[in-house]
């Protein structure tokens, strides 16, 4: 079964800790339309990094995480629930 592809919402800015010469796995995201700020760290940071690198659906993200030989715990609802939460915050939107 194919899973819902997403894209980054157009009204966002974000900055990775690495952009400022830091080595933490954190990204700060701003919704420019509402002036809301968000922080994603750890596995949430990893998912965001993959989304911005063009891995647009849960299957592609899971596959890439396997390729990276990483083990990631996405909690009770799994990766799909996390992507839905990102969508609910207006950080990603479904590809039409």
């Amino acid at each position: 079964m194919s899973r819902q592809p997403y894209r980054i919402s157009p009204e966002l800015a974000w900055v990775d800790a690495e952009d400022g010469g830091r080595h933490d796995h954190v990204v700060w995201i701003a919704r420019l339309d509402t002036a809301e700020l968000f922080e994603l760290a750890g596995s949430a940071w990893l998912v965001w990094s993959l989304l911005t690198d063009g891995f647009t659906d849960a299957s592609a993200i899971e596959h890439e995480i396997d390729e990276l030989e990483m083990t990631v715990d996405f909690g009770e609802g799994g990766l799909d629930a996390f992507l839905v939460a990102l969508e609910a915050q207006g950080l990603i939107e479904r590809e039409s």
């Binding site: 009204e11 800015a13 974000w14 900055v15 800790a17 952009d19 400022g20 700060w28 701003a30 420019l32 002036a35 809301e36 700020l37 968000f38 922080e39 994603l40 949430a44 939460a85 915050q89």
Partner: peptide, 22 residues
């Protein structure tokens, strides 16, 4: 997920972006 404290250097980056949007 909401970030009450963003380091000011990072906030500077997104502030530039917000001003460009304006």
């Amino acid at each position: 997920m909401l970030a009450p404290e963003v380091p000011v250097w990072a906030l500077t980056h997104v502030t530039h972006a917000a001003l460009q949007r304006t």
